[in-house]
């Protein structure tokens, strides 16, 4: 195998690779740069930031901001747990429904697929707006101060359903046909044959749902009031970044006088704490992309 493929490499392939490594490498650097700024300033002393702004390397090294964040880890850990729970449950349930709907909608022999597709797509164009949505959630569904208020609206998105529909289209229709011949029902075909075959698609869609939940703060802001002890991580972060009072409040257990709390560096430290661990999560998803390739190869 190795030898045959090596012989096949021509100049054009080499060129594409050179361009690829160069371009991707450069772009990745650009993406890394602001993140380095965040990390560097989170480890900087407040005084250095106030006097000379951000830098790629802390001018005066200090872990004060982290000390305050972790002195009272209860709130941060609680937020983490809430976000994690919502993300896991939401992604699992949402992914299943999306995959199921996507599969049904791409079936050429399903009479209502166009109508239902439009019914779903139409919601991306028109929405009731803030007030009616708020009324629905609070007055009719009574989801105020309920984690479901964040979980439910994030379950499905028209975009992901249509994406799923497109992905499953690449699975040959004959597979469904032959399974039908064997007497399998539509749902069984989906569950036993289609689902295991579409890991790359599921990984992608699942990743998107999970990201949506992880980055969600707006619904949390609207529906989860400060009366709830633990609120999603991004709302916590949003409050830290936009409100100095909030930082002073949340740092209350750290025994640091209110006026000495390092506002700027705490924003950055909280951002690192809220984002950092997710980076570890991504390679885990990547695995499924690769396993998807092997399934494709077997199929071919």
């Amino acid at each position: 195998m190795e030898q045959t493929s090596r012989r096949n490499i021509d100049t054009s392939t080499i060129m594409v690779r050179i361009i690829g490594y160069g371009f991707i490498g450069l772009f990745a650097l650009c993406c890394l740069f602001p993140f380095i700024l965040i990390v560097s300033s989170s480890f900087s002393s407040e005084k250095a930031i106030m006097e000379s702004g951000f830098a790629l390397w802390p001018k005066e090294f200090s872990t004060f901001a982290y000390e305050i964040v972790f002195k009272n880890p209860r709130l941060v850990i609680g937020s983490y747990f809430v976000t994690l729970a919502i993300t896991i449950v939401g992604t699992a349930v949402g992914l299943f429904i999306i995959a199921m709907t996507g599969y049904a909608l791409q079936r050429q022999d399903f009479l209502y697929r166009n109508k239902i597709s439009f019914y779903i797509y139409f919601t991306t164009l028109f929405s009731g707006g803030l007030v009616p949505f708020y009324l629905l959630m609070t007055k009719y569904l009574h989801l105020q101060d309920n984690y479901l208020a964040v979980l439910l609206p994030g379950l499905l998105s028209p975009f992901l359903i249509i994406m799923m529909k497109a992905f499953t289209k690449s699975i040959p229709h004959e597979i469904t046909e032959s399974a039908k011949m064997d007497g399998a029902g539509d749902f069984t075909i989906f569950l036993k044959i289609i689902l295991p075959m579409s890991t790359p698609a599921l990984a992608t869609i699942g990743l998107f749902i999970a990201l949506g939940y992880w980055n969600e703060w707006y619904n949390s802001m609207l529906f989860l009031s400060p009366n709830m002890e633990y609120r999603p991580l991004q709302l916590f972060l949003y409050n830290v970044v936009t409100s100095a009072d909030f930082i002073r409040n949340s740092a209350a257990a750290s025994n640091v006088p209110a006026q000495d709390i390092p506002l700027e560096t705490m924003k950055m430290a909280t951002a690192v704490v809220a984002t950092g661990p997710v980076i570890l999560f991504y390679p885990f998803v990547q695995k499924y992309f690769i396993s998807g390739i092997t399934i494709g190869a077997v199929k071919g």
């Binding site: 007030v131 708020y134 609070t138 609207l222 400060p226 936009t242």
Partner: peptide
Amino acid sequence: LKWIEWADYMTKYNLTLASGE
């Protein structure tokens, strides 16, 4: 007490009034 926190207080304050809560 129903707290309206400073972050985005305009939206939440007015929305709460508008919703007829």
